[in-house]
Amino acid sequence: MAAPTLEVRNLRTHFFTRAGIVKAVDDVSFTVERGKVLGLVGESGSGKTVTGFSIIGLVDPPGRIAGGSILFQGRDLAKLSEEEMRDLRGNRIAMIFQDPMMTLNPVLRIDTQMIETVLAHKKVSREEARQRARDTLGMVGIPSPDERLKAYPHQFSGGMRQRVAIAIALLHEPDLIVADEPTTALDVTIQGQILAEVQKLAATTGTSLIWITHDLSVVAGLADDIAVMYAGRVVEQGAVSEVLDRPLHPYTSGLIGSVPSRNKRGEPLRQIPGMTPSLLNLPPGCAFRTRCPRAGEECMAEPEIRGAGPGRMVRCFRPITEGAEQVA
């Protein structure tokens, strides 16, 4: 088996604020194989976005990577210089942001924003760069790309802008794309189109994908593997079908329970009580303890992540065992 595209090991990204250290990402490990899609799932504030920014090396002060390694094709990104990192960014590793209305610079034309990306990493003529930009726009399904290149971002709809952003990410056929909730801000129909588009592109180019989202239904259709994050930690991970069918962690089970679906019509939607705790003062022991229906004495200690069957990991003292009823 070839080396994985990305291997994150014990990543810790902390924000050193005046109010204290915020452990936005705390001991996170996962692997993304070549051409595979990893779904990184969690509520807002669970650290999934910061994980994404850590990989691409764009954690802004007061945050910084405090420990662990990010092995990208064997190189540790956490140890690279800013210059080396910039070489990879947008080239071998690309990122797509959440809000397409905000990711394109409003005062620069689309062609400027695309061509500068090409020229940042390849020594080609402006004309070749424009050619590449036009081809990529066509590839992501933007009609009459020649004309659209000369437009300003505000002349595009949200879905079109996200396609442009995706096109920019694809310009250098990267080995890894970190997509941070790229469809959350879009209509459901557009969301579907873009998901299908991305899936197709990933499959044809062999690009690996980290899809950050809070939406389990998106992950279910798109991802190969899934990692569930809670309060800066991965609480459960494994193959998508296994995790979604047989969640081990009570939090995963709660998440699944709160997705509305046709099968559960008539039943009241289940919800996870309480809110994500503030990362500044996490309760001692398991961070999910205060909201967990299965919490007990031992949960006052901090649980370690441990193996639970082939390819599966869980961070819980009292995982939901086979046969036990799912409680939320």
């Binding site: 009241p268 919800q271 009580p273 309480g274 809110m275 705790p277 003062n281 309760p283 205060t290 909201r291 967990c292 229906p293 939320a328």
Partner: peptide, 14 residues
């Protein structure tokens, strides 16, 4: 659901 609400009170920081 009732025990869920009981659990739902977030820990009040003193």
């Amino acid at each position: 659901m009732s025990d869920a609400t009981a659990n739902g009170t977030a820990p009040a920081t003193p």
